[in-house]
């Protein structure tokens, strides 16, 4: 397994807010899709046969699809659907991996060894395969996809958090807390958790982009979440048949997926640069 060293987080949190451009951009996009119902020009599911397959024009900025539905509205609503899935999955995965990581790292000993062994086992099977296996068993649907996404990513994060916590365990602060007889859970919550936070945030951000790509792949395979208002992956998969007749159907969701994944990676990198002082000088 690859070892990832994330330096000593917590040392300089104010600097997190520097070089904010990608972060601002990212937050803006998130706000846009989450506020979709308020901004979208029309009902994303309104069928209008006379308006089918219209190229982008002033009445439909991103054109219309095979049922005359407004692509811009569908992108906004679809973004919301995708975003909720991805955010819930990332939140779940982060919570799970942080708790397991801290438990293993802080307790050490047998607990650590057992948990590490389990994590290594899970790491042996690639994320998308875990996701496929889960979907094959649970069936598809938003909940199943969320579970699949969590299953695909949590082990890797837990491993990173665990190795971080293991290095913290021997730090002066925590040894002092132990010496003063603070209970283990208190040390975990008060001292260890805040110290891991910057790393966890970086991991979660990087995971956002990855999760969106996984959801898109699943949708492409016909195994994704499929609420009536399509998410981006589904829109992209559907647009394929219309590539010749209506290329704008593919451009819009494609650009959204790629753009969002790029942004999430950039934000992750910026945050990581802030979290790891050794990176800054280069």
């Amino acid at each position: 397994m690859v070892k990832v060293v994330l330096g000593h987080p917590g040392s300089s949190r104010p600097r997190l807010f520097r070089r904010a451009a990608p972060i601002l951009c990212f937050v803006l996009c998130l706000t846009l899709v989450l506020a979709a119902p308020q901004i979208a020009p029309t009902d994303p599911n309104e069928v209008s046969m006379p308006r089918r397959l219209m190229a982008p024009n002033p009445s439909a900025f991103l054109g219309t699809d095979q049922l005359g539905r407004d692509v811009l509205s569908r992108i906004l609503h679809g973004g919301q659907a995708a975003m909720i899935t991805v955010l819930v999955a990332v939140a779940g995965s982060t919570a799970l991996s942080t708790s397991v990581g801290i438990l293993a790292g802080a307790r050490g000993g047998l607990v650590d060894r057992v948990l590490c062994a389990v994590l290594d086992l899970l790491l042996a099977v690639p994320g998308l395969l875990v996701a496929l296996a889960i979907l094959g068993t649970l069936g598809t649907g938003r909940l199943a996809v969320i579970v699949a996404l969590i299953g695909a990513s949590w082990a890797e994060e837990a491993r990173i958090v665990r190795s971080l916590v293991a290095t913290l365990r021997s730090s002066a602060l925590i040894e002092a807390a132990h010496a003063l007889g603070a209970p283990a859970w208190r040390i975990g919550v008060v001292h260890v958790l805040p110290a891991t936070l910057p790393t966890v945030v970086v991991l979660a951000t990087l995971n956002l982009g990855q999760a969106l790509l996984t959801v898109s792949s699943l949708s492409f395979l016909g195994l994704g979440t499929q609420p009536p208002s399509a998410d981006w992956g589904t829109m992209l998969a559907e647009s394929r048949a219309y590539l010749g007749a209506a290329p704008w159907l593919m451009v819009a969701p494609g650009a959204c997926i790629v753009g969002f994944a790029v942004l999430a990676n950039l934000v992750g990198d910026v945050l990581q640069g802030q979290a790891d002082p050794r990176q800054r000088g280069r």
């Binding site: 690859v2 990608p22 890797e156 990087l206 290329p247 593919m250 451009v251 650009a255 910026v270 990176q279």
Partner: peptide
């Protein structure tokens, strides 16, 4: 699993998005 440090400037965002756009339009 590997996750390597990397820093990127604003210029790269633009370059990246431009490449993305072109890629999506290929062939009609």
């Amino acid at each position: 699993m590997a996750y390597e440090p990397n820093r990127i400037s604003r210029r790269m965002v633009l370059a990246g998005l431009a490449v993305g756009g072109v890629g999506a339009i290929i062939g009609c």
